Simulated assay, not measured.
Amino acid sequence: MAQRTVLFVLFDGVQSLDVTGPLEVFAGAEQHTPGSYRIRTASLDGAAVRTSSGLTVVPDEALAGADTPHTLVVPGGQGTRRPDARLADWLREHGPRAERLVSVCTGAIRLAEAGLLDGRRVTTHWAYCDKLAHDHPAVEVDPDPIYVRDGHVSTSAGVTSGIDLALALVEEDLGRDAALTIARHLVVFLRRPGNQAQFSAQLAAQTAQREPLREVQQWITEHPDADLSVESLAVRARLSPRHFARAFQTETGMTPGRYVDRVRLEHARRLLEDTSDGVEEISRASGYGTPEGMRRAFVRALGTAPSEYRRRFHPAQ
């Protein structure tokens, strides 16, 4: 088995977890299968970089002296908000030589600045998808998945999704057993499918300003199997259904129905990941009523059925 070099590009303002999360996955793979990976870090001049959290990281080498890697990883962070012509030039020259080109979070912005994402379907952190699409119209930006693989180019969303993508790459290289062992060691799931949406209901919605509406948001989260119709929720908020629906959308940025859909999907997803409960039981606990109702919701939102979703986390079941 040929050893694969994995090179992480460092720069001032890099997000430390964008680097260390995927790096720990590849390091775990090297421990599991010695000789599988050679992990390197490099900055433009080989100088130490200061991450967005203030942590100082000393790279192994300068990019100018780095060998062409098998997998080139470009992390994100606050530093990507400022264009870097020198780094863009280096990526433009050396990026196409790597067998795999990977970005974590807003590292996609660095790749786009170098013209390496033109004509490709990509993703990045949900808060920067619109900016990436606006600044680089030749790039097809998909804001929904946690990671996207388009040919030899792979892009991931927010920080932890870089771990998911790294696990997928290790599974491709070394097999599922190796990736599962690493995921268990890191106490993470193996593995969230790339087409899983990068949202949680609480993150996707704004917190309502008025206390009755905040209480309703919390009630929905804690009781996904309850009657969550607009009429029922309006009674809890002590508002008329029409006033409640209008106020809820104004203050949270989404309709009550959309919020309920997201809460129920998230609740069902977690039960599938964390428990051995049956699909029928989970569908009732999550407010879908029937397995078919839950299946339709999963296919619509995630592009996969609940049984397939669970298989990714519990392949023996």
Rank of each mutant, 00 (worst) to 15 (best):
A226F: 02
R214Q: 12
S240A: 15
D225Y: 02
A226W: 07
E273G: 03
H243T: 15
H243C: 02
S229G: 14
F244Y: 06
L213W: 01
V263G: 02
L265S: 03
D227N: 02
R242S: 12
L265R: 08
H267A: 06
D277A: 15
R258G: 07
S232N: 13
P241W: 03
Q218A: 14
L265E: 08
R246V: 12
P224H: 12
R246H: 10
V230D: 15
E215M: 02
D277H: 13
F248R: 13
L213R: 10
R242T: 14
E251D: 06
L265F: 14
A237T: 09
L271R: 14
E251C: 03
A245Q: 11
D261E: 10
A268D: 10
T250R: 14
S229H: 07
T275S: 12
E266Y: 10
E281D: 14
G278V: 05
E215R: 12
R258N: 08
H223P: 07
L265A: 03
A226G: 09
M254L: 14
T250S: 12
L272G: 05
R214W: 01
R238W: 04
L213K: 06
G278K: 04
A268S: 07
A245W: 07
L233M: 11
T275W: 00
T221S: 05
R236W: 07
R214F: 02
R242N: 11
R236E: 08
R246S: 04
R270Q: 15
L239E: 13
P224W: 14
A247R: 14
S240W: 08
V230N: 15
F248M: 08
L271S: 12
L233I: 02
F244I: 09
L265W: 13
M254E: 05
Q249H: 15
L271Q: 14
R262W: 14
R262T: 06
L228K: 00
D227C: 00
T275Y: 02
V216E: 10
T252N: 05
L213S: 10
R236S: 09
V235D: 11
H267F: 12
S240I: 04
E215P: 03
H267E: 02
T252L: 09
M254H: 05
W219S: 10
D274P: 00
L272Q: 08
D227I: 00
S232C: 07
L233G: 09
A268L: 03
R264N: 09
S276R: 13
L228Q: 00
D261V: 01
R269H: 09
R262Q: 13
G278P: 02
R246Q: 11
L239W: 09
D277G: 01
V230I: 12
M254I: 04
V260R: 10
E251Q: 15
Q218D: 15
F248W: 04
I220K: 03
R246W: 06
D274K: 03
